[in-house]
Nucleic acid binder design. Structure first.
Length: 530
RNA sequence: GCCGCGUUCGUCUAGCCCGGUCAGGACGCCAGGUUUUCAUCCUGGAAAUCAUGGGUUCGAAUCCCAUACGCGGUACCA
């Protein structure tokens, strides 16, 4: 059996769309699962929609996400043992790697033209000189008469061969149309949808070659997939209706058609096709917002696919997805892009990170935003190493409360500057000033006696918890309160002193990160103010 | 209009091909618990008359037909 080959074929219209990512991902997973090749080609036959730099962006996004290609368009001259590699003519700095190129459609114009001519010669296609205005008029009439909008074959029936030649000689603009046979039911199998049928009487003689010399998608994609030996065409559901045209082209060329898999669409919360209006659609937007690439891949993979029968695993690495992926478990209906679930998956991925990884990712994420400059408010004189250690401590106690990289430091700003003094905040329940002071003094005494080397998260928690469970006479009026509530007598004022915040990590964690010196200083400072 | 595809908790979905467990899991939501607050974590709960209507059958989310609704296509865009 032939080696399985799939491809991702985006148009360079700006950025990698999450829907595009899903298509790319499934094509990648399917190929890798079956020890096949995954390639990238560029569909840039519509010059009106071309965006400068989009090709590079697309490649960068795929590279960043780790969807490696065996072949096709790349940003560096990667050479696997016996493949060719050459710089693209149209995109300097972009390379085409592999033996089945070009992988960029705008560089294959002559090839498409050759094949289109071949179709005409064999009677499978014909020249059309109709002007756009006439076509539009015709379509309007057909719609008004409730007829299917189909080209009326004016040029096939009324333009003689001599006229065609004359027109061509005079450089009349022309297109080439496919000749769709009448009265035929074209049947085809789709891996996801099963058998699909089309009546050719309702299929128009689609244009294959435009008057600007560029091919349309139909011609180009069929030729490309043949040239590149694609075995499985995995693409969005919006292509399902043009399947008969493609089947016909394979037949006309005498080529074996690949297998098709039309993926369900990604939807907005209102079930319309996922669009910019209702949120971000570019993968890079999600990266910029602080989502991990692992989470994005994980989430997008689960939109429309699941491991099936009994499997309840939700968190998958790319490698695990490769292992489990199966086209037969792709759902048929469209899937709503639910950001809440993405948030959860992201938080799960953040929890899996080591502190070192979390630190590196945070650094990378915040670099451009100069987040860590807030550090300098208090610790300007610190060495880079001290700073790094400090930040890692913060991340250690923050990791479980993060849903997103952008939240790093957000709930822990008090580490960077002196805590605000707010006597009402310091009070546990209706504590008197006197009790409040006693509580803080007790904490101070306890903490002063902890040596530097014992100043660890575990010790601080152990020692402070023991003290919190004691019920000193001065605080006896809280004795009837629940056990946990009783602990609050000691712990709440401490925590509030250290942070000046209503919500924060525990006092043990705060004291640990702040260090002995800073902790004692904040305590003394507050006690002095009561 | 015409053609095609789809339809299970709010959302992602399992189950459907090979009819017969209170239709299962996850997110979100609610409640309770864990070492004070927040978060994490744990436990529990509400949440789908399986789009609707007809069949077939002792029995249907599962098979058949129709209808509705949604989406996609209907371009010298992909």
């Amino acid at each position: 059996m032939n080696k399985i080959r799939t491809r991702f074929a985006p148009s360079p219209t700006g950025y990698l769309h999450v829907g595009g990512l899903r298509t790319a991902l499934y094509a990648y997973l399917f190929a890798k699962k079956n020890d096949g090749d995954f390639l990238l080609k560029i569909e840039d036959t519509d010059r009106k929609r071309f965006v400068e730099g989009a090709v590079e962006k697309l490649i960068n996004s795929l590279d960043f996400l780790g969807l490696e290609r065996n072949e096709g368009v790349m940003l560096s001259k990667v050479l696997s043992s016996n493949t060719n590699s050459q710089e693209s003519k149209n995109y300097p700095g972009v390379f085409e790697v592999g033996e089945y190129g070009p992988y960029i459609q705008s560089e294959k114009l002559e090839i498409y033209k050759k094949y289109a001519d071949e179709l005409v010669k064999n009677g499978y296609a014909y020249y059309c000189f109709c002007e756009p205005e006439r076509l539009e008029e015709m379509r309007k009439e057909q719609t008004a008469k409730k007829q299917p909008p189909i080209y009326d074959r004016f040029c096939l029936q009324n333009v003689s061969e001599e006229e065609v030649n004359k027109n061509l000689k005079n450089n009349c603009p022309y297109t080439i149309r496919i000749k769709v046979p009448h009265d035929e039911i074209i049947e085809a199998d789709d891996i996801i949808r099963g058998r699909v049928k089309f009546n050719t009487n309702l299929v128009t003689d689609q244009i294959l070659l435009k008057s600007d010399g560029f091919p349309t998608y139909h011609l180009a994609s069929v030729i490309d997939d043949h040239d590149m030996q694609t075995t499985h065409v995995i693409r969005g559901e919006e292509w399902l209706p043009s399947m008969p045209i493609h089947i016909l082209l394979y037949r006309y060329f005498g080529w074996e058609a690949p297998k098709f898999a039309h993926l369900p669409l990604l939807l907005n919360p209102d079930k319309s096709k996922l669009s910019k209006r209702q949120g971000d659609v570019a993968v890079e937007d999600y990266i910029k917002k602080g989502y991990l690439k692992e989470a994005i891949i994980n989430f997008v993979a689960m939109l429309g696919w699941n491991p099936g029968k009994g499997e309840t695993q939700e968190i998958f690495t790319l490698e695990e997805l490769v292992e489990k992926f199966d086209l037969s478990h792709v759902h048929k209906a469209g899937a709503v892009f639910d950001i809440k679930k993405l948030d959860w998956i992201n938080s799960q991925w953040i929890k899996k990170l080591s502190i070192e990884e979390l630190y590196q990712k945070s650094l990378e994420f915040f670099e451009e935003k100069e987040f860590y400059k807030s550090w300098n408010m208090k610790h300007e004189a610190c060495s880079t190493e001290e700073k790094e250690n400090y930040l890692k401590k913060i991340l250690t106690i923050e990791q479980d409360r993060l849903q997103n990289l952008s939240e790093v430091g957000e709930s822990n700003q008090f580490f960077f500057h002196d805590a605000n003094f707010d006597k009402e905040l310091l009070r546990w329940k209706d504590m008197s000033d006197e009790d409040l002071k006693k509580s803080l003094e007790k904490s101070l005494t306890v903490l002063e006696n902890i040596t530097d080397e014992n100043w660890t998260r575990e010790n601080l928690e152990k020692i402070l918890m023991e003290k919190a469970d004691e019920k000193p006479a001065s605080l006896a009026r809280f004795a009837e309160s629940r056990r946990a509530g009783g602990r609050g007598e000691l712990l709440w004022p401490l925590r509030a002193t250290l942070t000046g915040e209503k919500k924060s990590p525990s006092p043990f964690e705060c004291a640990w990160v702040l260090g002995k010196e800073e902790t004692l200083s904040r305590l003394k400072n507050t006690i002095g103010k009561i």
